[in-house]
Design a protein around this nucleic acid. Structure first.
Lengths: 251, 251
DNA sequence: CCATGTTGTTCTCAGGTTGAGTATTACTCG
DNA sequence: CGAGTAATACTCAACCTGAGAACAACATGG
């Protein structure tokens, strides 16, 4: 904010230092059991040829979230929404503003985090020639400080799976328990005990609710047809689905 | 961020729209068992006479975190650090940039959250004439969108007490288990079972470590002298200290 | 200095949750 | 049709939790 006091006898004689505000979007999805992030190829000079998170300037009339949604839609053709098929969950991640993070000028970037169900390749669609889904394990050496932003997004995603029903944003509107389990496995990078996962998911009130139906066929390699569920109305998971503990304490 | 593509054939003809970037700091402390936030009085026109979070412009050569630390130091005389007496924990909270949130111009504010041990009144110190610790229950009707920022800070603080040793940032370097419990009670707004809290804190590896010593006297209203502890080296609490469940599910 | 009430610390115990393993059955593919 | 796989349901021991009680060490006010 800006107190009037600061505004008048401000420390900086200039009215305001030249700053640009941008948004960058970490968009995650699970394809074929592997966590992917949406990246674009940079053509021009700072970091030319490197990959980067999609992003751009915040326009004068839009909110930060609107700018993030616009950037996301431009790259993927998605329409972020809140409940329909193809809906995308979008939330603010953090802001990055170290002097020198962009060699051209002072740029403050507000990073957003988006979760999408499995989607077609963005190349197929609009003007986003250089956009592609990249497995997070191969997404290193990004432009600017985007490696750090991506890492923060992954941390946040992994943590939010524990205590929110966010995993349902990665699957279609109707899904099976094992599809949900595959999301957890992909994001956390470790397999989960099928029986315990099943018990846990069904015991958390409001996490999933049964459609009376059953999948039209069994798994690819066999097994019975699984029951179908849709996302419930819970916003917080109680009790939480805690991931197996790593090296505790100092970390 | 800012792709060169955007930079060149950008949507906005001007080089960059006029934007100011500020930091606002939500500084929390526990005094006499009550959670307080540091606020300043606004003298000049937008929201004159209202209270607001301390904040100000980000200077050209400093990082966002440095700007937040500077604002905090200016208002309190504190020196944020990481382990000494009077150390203050500082972390980024979120950014706020709706058009119109400041009536004068487009202002993007990066909010920070700080946790301090009980401190003397800021009035005593430097040039911060209008700064004061205010119980959070009385901190409503703040300037700009600071009510929302404060609410976000409180949410974050309450959540982080569960799975991080953050409570130790609210107490002196050496403290008793019940002083720690008083912090949880103040931040969460509910009393905790002393016996269970004791057991839990001591069972989490790295949360606290014993100094061999004992408090110099018992409680104000009686009771034995408690043992003294200092913060351990854990950064994450495993298992977490979960607060009693509220209204589950829909929330 | 004594009676009273308060508090730090340790136990106990019943109930719930967890991880790991097993059983059963319904599917797939070749 | 046979072999392998996966969805779902159980079992069981280990652990954690909330609630309560026990007890000793203290402060305070007469």
């Amino acid at each position: 904010m800006t107190t009037e006091r600061e505004f008048l006898d401000g420390y900086d004689p200039r009215e305001f230092p030249p700053v640009a505000v941008t948004v960058d979007v970490v968009t995650l999805t699970v394809r074929d059991g592997v966590l992917h992030v949406l990246l674009v190829d940079r053509a021009q000079h700072p970091f030319a040829g490197r990959r980067a998170l999609p992003g751009g300037f915040v326009r004068e009339s839009e909110t930060l979230a609107e700018a993030a949604m616009r950037e996301l839609a431009e790259e993927t053709g998605l329409r972020p929404g809140e409940g329909q098929l193809g809906a995308v969950h979008l939330e603010q991640l953090a802001s990055y503003g170290d002097p020198g993070r962009d060699p051209r000028m002072r740029v403050i970037s507000v990073a957003y985090l988006a979760f999408a169900p499995s989607l077609p390749d963005p190349r197929a669609g609009g003007d986003a020639a250089g956009a592609a889904w990249v497995p997070v394990s191969e997404a290193a050496g990004l432009a600017f400080d985007h490696d750090a932003i991506l890492a923060a997004g992954l941390d946040r995603a992994r943590a939010k799976l524990e205590y929110t029903p966010l995993a349902t944003a990665f699957v279609p509107a109707e899904f099976t328990i094992s599809e949900l389990r595959a999301v957890y496995a992909a994001v956390w990078g470790e397999d989960l005990h099928p029986g315990n996962f099943h018990r846990k998911v069904l015991s958390v009130p409001g996490f999933v609710e049964s459609t009376g139906e059953t999948a039209s066929r069994g798994g690819e390699r066999g097994g019975p047809r699984a029951r179908l569920y849709r996302a419930g109305d819970a916003r917080l998971l109680h009790p939480a689905l805690l991931r197996p503990a790593r090296e505790d304490g100092v970390r």
